[in-house]
Design a protein around this nucleic acid. Structure first.
Length: 319
DNA sequence: CACCAGGCGATCT
DNA sequence: AGATCGCATGGT
C-alpha cells in the first residue's frame, strides 16, 4: 500500500481486503451518500470527503496528503493487516468462512466517539435507512455547513432539509451542501424539541442525556479508551438509552475495543442459525462469541452481521 | 397494509 | 434474574 498525490487527489494504491461500498454500507456509519459504483461522499471527522475506489486504488478526491495521513488512513483502518485477522478468525472457527468470503472488503472504521454515541442511540429499534435520515436531519439542523459539495444528502429529507419536495436522486439533485455532525453544545442549544422535529421520537431525551453526561465529564472519552472492555461498557450504560447493544457498537466503532460484540436482531439470527439451531437468549450468544472469537469478536461480528442481514438469515418469511 | 426495525426502560413475577 | 410491554415513526 502506497499513497501518492495526483493532481488534487490522494491515490492509495495496492489496497488489500478493502471494498469501499462494503465498509460504508455494512451498518457501522450513517452519514454518507452513494454517488455511483464505489463512489461516495461522506461527512465525518468535521469534514466532507469525496472518496472512490477503482480496483485496488482508493481515491481521496480534493484531499491533502496531510489530511490523508492524519485522518483518513486511521478512519478507514487502512494501517491494519486484515489478511492476518481473517486467517486468525478462520483458525478459530471455519464456520465464519462464508461470511468472510462474501464480505471480504469490510473494515471496521475508527469513527468519532461523540457522533458514534449519538448515532447508535438513535439506531435503537429503527431501520438503517431511517437512522441515516435522522443523522442527516440533526446535522442539517444543528451542524456546521461544510465546504459546498455538488450533491445534496438525500436522506436529509422529510422536513429536515432543503431537499424536501425535490428529487432525492443524487444524479439529479446537483446543488447542495454537506453538514458536519453537531457537537454536544450545538445539540443542547437546539433543545429536545428540535431533536424531536428531526424524528428521533422517544430517543430524543436519551440524546439530551448523552450530551449532558458528555459535557459534564461523567462520560469521558479518554477514560473510556483507557478502560478495559467491561468497564467501558458499564460506563457507557450510565447514559439513558444506552444498553448492551448500543454500548458495544460505540466501543467497537469509536473506542477501539475490537473484542466488543454487539448482539442485534441479525447477529442473533445468524448465531442461532450457525451454532444453536433454535431461539437463544442474547446473554448466551454473547458468551459464546467471547469464547469462540475472544479478542477478535468485533471483526467476526461485522462479517456475520452484514452477511446475515444481506441474506436475511433466519428472518421470518411471510406467507 | 400489517409487520417490524443494528433496543431499551419500566414494570411486573 | 427473567418475561412482557410500550415506545415514535415510517420503510418494506
Amino acid at each position: 500500500m502506497n499513497a501518492d498525490i495526483k493532481g488534487n487527489d490522494v491515490v492509495v494504491s495496492n489496497v488489500r481486503d478493502f471494498l469501499l461500498s462494503q465498509t460504508l454500507e455494512c451498518g457501522q456509519c450513517f452519514h454518507f451518500v452513494r454517488l455511483g459504483e464505489e463512489d461516495y461522499v461522506l461527512s465525518a471527522m468535521g469534514r466532507c470527503l469525496h472518496v472512490s475506489q477503482r480496483g485496488d486504488n482508493l481515491i481521496f478526491h480534493d484531499t491533502s496528503m496531510e489530511d490523508y495521513v492524519n485522518i483518513w488512513e486511521k478512519y478507514f483502518d487502512l494501517d491494519r493487516d486484515y489478511g492476518a485477522i481473517k486467517a486468525i478468525l478462520l483458525e478459530k472457527d471455519d464456520a465464519l468462512k462464508p461470511a468472510i468470503d462474501a464480505m471480504w472488503g469490510v473494515r471496521i472504521l475508527n469513527q468519532d466517539f461523540f457522533e458514534t454515541l449519538i448515532s447508535f442511540i438513535i439506531s435503537q429499534n429503527q431501520q438503517i435507512v431511517r437512522i441515516k435520515q435522522i443523522v442527516a436531519g440533526i446535522s442539517y439542523n444543528c451542524g456546521r455547513e461544510l465546504a459546498p459539495f455538488p450533491v445534496v444528502f438525500p436522506d436529509a429529507k422529510t422536513g429536515c432539509s432543503e431537499t424536501e419536495g425535490k428529487s432525492t436522486n443524487p444524479e439529479i439533485v446537483l446543488k447542495g451542501v454537506c453538514y458536519s455532525f453537531p457537537d454536544a453544545d450545538a445539540i443542547l442549544a437546539a433543545g429536545v424539541e428540535r431533536i424531536r422535529e428531526c424524528k428521533a421520537g422517544f430517543r430524543s431525551p436519551y440524546i439530551i442525556d448523552a450530551c449532558e453526561k458528555y459535557k459534564s465529564g461523567i462520560i469521558n472519552e479518554k477514560e473510556l479508551r483507557a478502560a478495559d472492555y467491561t468497564d467501558c461498557i458499564e460506563m457507557l450504560k450510565q447514559i439513558k438509552g444506552v444498553g448492551d447493544k448500543v454500548a458495544n457498537c460505540v466501543a467497537l466503532f469509536s473506542l477501539g475495543k475490537r473484542n466488543a460484540f454487539p448482539v442485534d436482531v441479525w447477529i442473533k439470527r445468524s448465531m442461532e442459525s450457525i451454532y444453536f439451531g433454535k431461539e437463544t437468549p442474547i446473554a448466551r450468544i454473547q458468551t459464546l462469541a467471547d469464547e469462540k472469537y475472544g479478542e477478535y469478536g468485533g471483526y467476526a461480528q461485522q462479517y456475520l452481521f452484514y452477511f446475515g442481514k444481506v441474506n436475511e438469515i433466519g428472518k421470518k418469511t411471510r406467507k
